[in-house]
Amino acid sequence: GATAVSEWTEYKTADGKTYYYNNRTLESTFEKPQELK
Rank of each mutant, 00 (worst) to 15 (best):
T25R: 01
Y21G: 01
Y19I: 11
N23L: 08
L36G: 06
S6G: 12
T13W: 03
L36W: 09
G1H: 15
T18M: 05
V5Y: 12
T13V: 02
T3H: 12
E27H: 05
D15I: 03
E31R: 06
G16P: 00
T3I: 12
K37S: 14
Q34W: 13
K32N: 05
T9K: 09
Y20L: 00
S28H: 10
F30L: 07
G1K: 09
T13S: 07
L26G: 15
E35H: 08
G16M: 02
E31K: 06
D15A: 07
Q34M: 11
E10P: 04
E10V: 10
T9W: 07
A2N: 14
G1W: 14
D15L: 05
P33W: 02
N22A: 01
Y11H: 14
W8A: 00
S6H: 10
T25D: 02
T13M: 07
Y11V: 10
K37W: 14
T18R: 05
P33D: 02
T3W: 08
T3M: 14
D15E: 11
A4M: 12
N23W: 15
A2Q: 13
E7R: 04
T29K: 05
V5F: 13
Q34V: 13
T25M: 01
N23G: 05
R24Q: 10
N22M: 00
T9N: 07
K17S: 06
F30K: 04
Q34T: 12
T18V: 12
K37V: 15
G16W: 01
A14F: 04
A2W: 10
K32Y: 05
P33I: 02
E31A: 07
Q34R: 10
G16S: 02
T25N: 02
G16V: 00
N23Q: 10
L26P: 01
A4E: 12
A4H: 13
A14S: 10
E10C: 13
E31N: 09
L26R: 13
A4R: 07
F30G: 04
W8D: 00
N22E: 01
T18I: 12
E7T: 06
K37R: 14
Q34L: 14
K12H: 09
V5T: 13
Y11C: 15
N22S: 03
K17Q: 10
E35V: 08
A4F: 08
N23C: 15
E27D: 04
K17A: 07
G1E: 14
K12T: 12
Y11A: 07
W8N: 00
R24P: 01
E35W: 05
T29N: 03
Y21E: 03
P33S: 02
Y19V: 10
D15Y: 05
W8F: 01
W8I: 01
F30V: 06
R24K: 13
Y19S: 03
S6N: 11
D15W: 06
E10D: 02
E27G: 03
A2E: 12
Y21V: 14
R24D: 04
D15N: 07
E7A: 07
N22I: 01
A14D: 09
E27W: 03
A14P: 12
